[in-house]
Amino acid sequence: MVLTPAALIFSTLTVTAYVIANFIYLRFRKTPLNPVITTTVALVAILVLFDIPYETYMEGGDWIAFLLGPAVVALAVPLYKHRQLLQKNLVPIAAGITAGVLAGLVSGTLFTRWLGFADELILTVLPKSLTTPVAMQIASTIGGIPSLAAVFVMVAGFTGILLGPYMLHALHIDSPIGRGIGLGASAHGLGTAKAFEYGPESASMSSVAMTLAAVLGALLSPLVAWLLL
C-alpha cells in the first residue's frame, strides 16, 4: 500500500459512493437498492467508462480492504454479547450450523464438479454462505479467487433473503431458532438483516449463526476441498 494520487482518488471515490448509496437505501428501503450492489455497480461503471484498470483502482481500494481483517476479529464482540443465548441453546445451534455448513460446502462442491468447472472456481464457490470478509480470506487461503468469492457471497445473500422466506414457510421452519439459524448460516449479514423482520430473537440467533458458520466454515473448507477434489 503506497499513498499515490490514484490511491487518494479511488479510496475517496469508494467512500463517497458508499455514503451516497447508503443515503439512497435508507430513503427508499428496497432490497435491490442494497448499498453493496449499488456502490459496486456505480464503481464498475466508472472503471469501464473511463477505461481504468482494476489494478489502478485497487491502489485506493487496498486502503479500504485493509480493514477487513480487523473487522473479522471484531466479530468476537457481538458473539460475546450473545453468549447467554448461545449457552442456553448450544446443542440446537451447534447441530444446525454444522448441518448447514456441511450441506453448503458439499452441495457447492458436487454441483460445480458435475458441471466440470476448474478447481479454482470450485474453491471460489465453496465459502459462498460465509460472511464476505471471511469468505474472501478462505478463498485466498485454499486457492480460490477472493474477488469472485465476494460476488458469490452476494448471490447467496440475495437468494437467502428473496427466496429463503418462502422455503422456510414451505418446510414449516417457523420458530425463532429455526428461522434465525437458517438465515444466518446460509445468507450471513443479509440474512441477519432479514431475520430482524421476524423479531429480535430470530435476529440474535442469525447473528450468532453467521459468526459461528464463518468459524466452522474456515475450519471445514480446506478439509472438504481436500476430500472432494
Binding site: T39, L43, Y54, M58, G61, I64, L68, S147, A150
Partner: peptide, 10 residues
Amino acid sequence: LYFIPATVGV
C-alpha cells in the same frame, strides 16, 4: 464498505 473494493473486482 470494506469488501466493496473486492466486489468491484468482478
